[in-house]
Amino acid sequence: MTVEAILFYVFGILAVVSALGMVLNIRNTVASAMSLVVTMVSLGAIYLLLEAYLVAVIQIMVYGGAIVVLFLFVVMLLNLSTDEFPPGKQRVAKLAVVIVGVAILAQVLVALGQAPLLVAQPEAVPEGFGGYRQLGLSLYTDYVLLVEMVSLLLLAAIVGALILAKRKID
């Protein structure tokens, strides 16, 4: 096995185990959030192994860093304990989660069965493919309208959040 393969299996197993740790750890919400961080960072490491550097950095910076820190902030602020999640009321939710999970798994398995796992040598990508220059260029030339639309949507969301959070608007 090459070094890349070993690293892939290490991070892959880490990602799966910590994802399970996040879902199954119902006692301790902070530990569960930290498991999510480990999942995100391991995914970032797998992207690194795929030489998708920008995606890896964004994965770690945005998902691993910013978003889960916000989760953690809220979780710590609320300081939830097990009493606030009485086991009886979640049966429907749990059932729904299991059904969705099985459906996704079935779909993945069907897709894997149809497509050959090892494609012949893929075509070489052009120099700098997927780097920040190419991403920036295509975002701000070809897709500039979409970017602007998304930014408007985000602005509306920020204003909405402000109005919801501020009890008294002066």
Binding site: M34, V37, V41, G44, Y53, L54, V57, I60, M61, G64, G65, A66, V69, L72, G131, Y132
Partner: peptide, 15 residues
């Protein structure tokens, strides 16, 4: 992506 690397690493340190 040297500078992005530092930002990414720094965001992990916050934990």
């Amino acid at each position: 992506w040297g500078l992005l690397y530092i930002f990414a690493i720094g965001s992990i340190a916050a934990y």
